[in-house]
Simulated scan of single mutants.
Amino acid sequence: MTTLYDFQAETIKGENKSLSDYKGKVIVVVNTASKCGFTRQYADLQKLYEQYQGQGLEIIGFPSNQFGEQEPGSNDEVESFCQINYGVTFPLFAKTDVRDETAHPVFKYLTEAAPFEGFDTTEPGGKKMDSYLSEKHPQRMSDNSIKWNFTKFLIDREGKVVKRFESTVEPLDMTADIETLL
């Protein structure tokens, strides 16, 4: 059975890293962007990392420029932006594609393991994203792909996907799910 540990990815520093290095950890995988309305989520992701890293939480970010070209910078620029503006210390990986034919195998695996179940349209942010994507990118709504920046996947200590959180879900709203796995 495939797990997250079966994959490798390039770090933001250009080094090849096996995700099996995170064996035994609870992991949040998130696709990120520096010029997005959700970019502020970096702050709460960092808070979660600081609060729970000692208990075995890892957060790993994958910058992507696939949504509105909201991550135009180089890997060095992305890393600098995250550190200066949000104090990010969790691992970042190289800019990568997270959807369509060019999606990194990690994201192909994640979206198959945790299909898109829709946005929570009872919340204003979810209603807005659902409406925007349905109108501007209707093809995105009919598959399990990543819909936008800051889609988050929660992985258990065995490397299995437990839950998918769409962009509109605030990182701190994942706390109870994270604590259950820790």
Rank of each mutant, 00 (worst) to 15 (best):
Q41A: 10
S134V: 00
S131L: 15
T168P: 06
I27F: 04
P105Q: 11
M174G: 05
N65P: 04
S18R: 12
Y22G: 01
D44C: 01
S167M: 02
I178W: 05
M1Q: 11
G68M: 03
L182F: 05
L133V: 12
Y22W: 14
Y22V: 02
F93T: 09
I12R: 04
V78T: 15
L92W: 06
G14W: 06
N16F: 00
E112Y: 03
N85D: 13
N16D: 13
E69V: 07
E50I: 01
R157E: 03
F119S: 14
I84Y: 04
P124H: 10
I146M: 06
I84P: 01
D173V: 00
Y42Q: 09
D76T: 08
D130E: 15
I60V: 15
M129G: 02
G159C: 06
N75K: 01
D21Y: 01
S34W: 07
T11K: 10
M129C: 13
N75C: 02
H137L: 13
Q46W: 03
A113P: 07
F81I: 07
R99M: 07
D97G: 11
S34Q: 14
T168R: 06
E71W: 03
G126C: 05
Q8G: 03
T3V: 10
F67D: 11
G118A: 05
T111N: 09
P124R: 11
A33I: 12
I84L: 14
I27R: 09
Q53F: 00
P115F: 03
M174P: 06
T121Y: 06
S74L: 06
G24I: 02
N149S: 08
K163M: 03
P124K: 13
G24F: 01
F7K: 10
T168C: 12
S131Q: 15
G56S: 00
K160R: 15
E158C: 01
P91L: 03
Y52H: 13
Q53E: 13
R164D: 01
V161Y: 09
A114G: 08
G24N: 03
A9D: 14
E158G: 12
E58K: 02
A33N: 12
N16Y: 00
E170F: 02
L182P: 06
P63F: 02
T32V: 15
N149I: 01
M129K: 08
W148P: 05
P63T: 05
M174H: 05
Q41F: 07
G68A: 05
T102P: 00
